[in-house]
Design a protein around this nucleic acid. Structure first.
Lengths: 211, 211
DNA sequence: GTCTATATATTGATAGAC
DNA sequence: GTCTATCAATATATAGAC
């Protein structure tokens, strides 16, 4: 067990940023090394290959899901259903802040580095954890969600809409396709869920959801 | 205006296949040349750069939309709404035939070669034409589609579900995430559309969601 | 239009001193 | 753990004969 190395972290963070903005294959290790101010020898001390570095980046995304995606979304509202759409709002922010150039980094990698088994498993893990976060919201919504509704399928559907919406937003360099798709999902939720208001407990005293 | 060159076509088709299965950046021109049995000099006689070849590939996809996607789907059924799902069935076939390794080639490129303006425009054109094909179905459905419903948004939503479903199917190497997302979309359509006579077809392979 | 040969840069990765 | 030097392979692209 090595003591945490700031050099290793710098490599992962730099690679994460470059893979996200340029893609995996379009990013050379030379560029990673220059930006991280690390020598080639050090990189291969920590990672046995470029793919190994990618695996570390994907592990980092697993770690970041809660603090960087779910927590910021969940603190916006206590209503479980609104939380689902707050998660989608996080990705809207990504798009908005970057002029619709950056979307979901996992989605990029999912379509680009399809080949190797280990990598794909790590991508699937990221998707699974993301869906689990959504499913927790659906479970927390209690009887507002029809008991016979497939929560797993619905949480995957939320991911589907996010990824598909992000893709079109980037292709058109416009938030509108994303917003329209999310609005459709919202409409579906409205038709799907019991119209009753959420049960409010004393611990559940958050500002009401917008809209 | 040059007379149609089989060499040029061979380059485009070979690049199309390799870009689709390996990605744009992961495919070297050397590999394209070897597979197409063409010399480098010939490639640069027809195309001024690798990106120029990509543009030709994207133009080819524009040409292929009707004959390779819409027509085969539309000939499966005359019902306009069933045709929408038949289009999704075409992509399910792509996934199924390739063990969930190949999905939508435009989606791959949309997330990978995000950079250059001309390329992005060509990708957006492919998406627009695809959505137009869906919108024609919605229009053909007449008063089964509520008149105040945004058909543009709904056609984009169908693309969203296709791309998001394909992405998860490839990540998990399983048709199930795709099927579940399409089933959700079907359920949404059922709730959305006037309860007309949508004859069920064999195109529906996945079990319908509860509700 | 096709061919060979080549230019230049960068790729991922390694060796071995410190 | 870090450094420099370097490997062999490949990248995209070009020149010029045929």
């Amino acid at each position: 067990m090595e003591t945490p190395s700031s050099t290793r972290d710098r490599l992962i963070e730099t690679a994460r940023e470059l893979f996200r903005s340029q893609g995996y294959n379009a990013t050379g290790l030379k560029q990673v090394l220059a930006k991280a101010e690390v020598n080639a020898g050090s990189l291969y001390y920590f990672f046995k290959s470029k793919e190994d570095l990618l695996l570390a980046v994907l592990d980092r995304y697993v770690e970041l899901l809660r603090p960087a995606v779910l927590d910021p979304a969940f603190e916006q509202t206590a209503d479980p259903i609104e939380r689902v759409f707050a998660v989608l709002g996080v990705y809207r922010e990504y798009l908005s802040k970057t002029g619709c150039t950056l979307g979901c980094p996992i989605g990029n990698l999912a379509l680009e580095v399809d080949a190797r088994l280990v990598v794909r498993e790590r991508i699937a893990l990221n998707f699974n954890n993301w869906c689990r976060g959504i499913r927790e919201c659906l479970d927390a919504a209690g009887d507002r969600v029809p008991p016979d509704l497939d929560r797993q399928a619905l949480s995957e559907f939320v991911l589907t809409v996010m990824e598909g919406g992000v893709m079109q937003a980037r292709a058109h360099r416009s938030l509108e396709p994303f917003d329209r798709s999310v609005a459709m999902l919202r409409d579906y939720f409205n038709r799907l869920l019991a119209a009753g208001p959420p049960e409010r407990s004393d611990a559940d005293r958050a500002p009401p959801p917008p809209g």
